[in-house]
């Protein structure tokens, strides 16, 4: 398959621009990242700098990869990370726009690589439970119903890739933050710090420079792990509850 790529190129500290590349003789079974690898090999041979992009596991579980492809975060295929998107999903001969996540809170480091430390700051603010380390607790010491466990697992699927921010017209991080608040709010282990967690994570999110949620639903549509908007309603509930009870 052949494609015309329109790729965002940006050197650190400089202004970026869209540059056009040909991607020739690409296997339909190549993943999107493998296609970029092939283009990069040629660029390097031709003495040009390779296109920088983030990746790690390439099996859809680590959350490192992600670009906005033809206007869709992680490309147009539902519930798929960019590394799991294959070129057969594109039309032969088509033009493909590849851009980095766009958000004030995610500055571009180089080309398609953005700095997602803002997500780390949100997690550091309260996305954890404080427990004594040491020997592993007995697996069944705390009973959790099947329904609750399933619901918590559904949100725990979030891999923190940032597609929700990239897809949101407001570059809001509410889906990510709500998933992280929800997975702990649902479980008994999360209860002791429930109030402070909502308070602190929401504020960390605000400080990072993300936009506000105006309920467009684009995040849910883009999320490769299909995290639901319901979690945003839960975040709002948690935050209102914590604010009423005045625990910070």
């Amino acid at each position: 398959m052949n494609f015309t790529l329109k790729v965002w190129r940006q050197k650190p500290g400089e202004k970026g621009k869209i540059v056009t590349y040909d991607a020739k003789e690409i296997s339909s079974d190549a993943s999107f990242l493998e296609m970029l690898d092939i283009v990069n090999e040629r660029l390097v041979i031709e003495g040009e700098e390779a296109i920088a992009f983030d990746h790690d596991c390439r099996e859809g579980i680590c959350g490192m990869c992600g670009c906005v492809v033809n206007g869709y975060a992680h490309g147009h295929q539902e519930g798929t990370t960019l590394c799991q998107l294959h070129m057969r999903a594109f039309e032969d001969g088509s033009v493909i726009y590849v851009e980095p996540w766009r958000s004030r809170a995610f500055p571009v480091l180089k080309d398609l690589v953005v700095d997602r430390s803002a997500f780390d700051a949100i997690i550091t603010a309260g996305g954890y439970i404080s427990i004594r380390t040491g020997s592993a607790p007995d697996g069944n010491a705390i009973a959790v119903s099947k329904e609750t466990a399933d619901a918590a697992m559904d949100v725990a699927e979030c891999i923190g890739c940032g597609a929700c921010v990239a897809a949101c017209p407001n570059a809001s991080a509410m889906l990510f933050t709500s998933a992280k608040i929800s997975q702990l709010a649902l479980l008994p282990q999360g209860q002791p710090e429930r109030m402070t967690r909502a308070q602190r994570m929401v504020r960390a999110m605000e400080v990072a420079g993300f936009g506000a949620c105006t309920n467009h639903g684009e995040c849910e549509a883009a999320c490769p792990k299909e995290i639901k908007l319901d979690n945003i309603a839960r975040l709002n509930r948690e935050f209102i509850g914590a604010s009423v009870k005045k625990q910070a």
Binding site: K6, W8, I18, N70, Y97, H216, G217
Partner: peptide, 8 residues
């Protein structure tokens, strides 16, 4: 974005 598409 140079190209942005909305779904929802």
């Amino acid at each position: 974005y140079a190209v942005k598409r909305y779904q929802e």
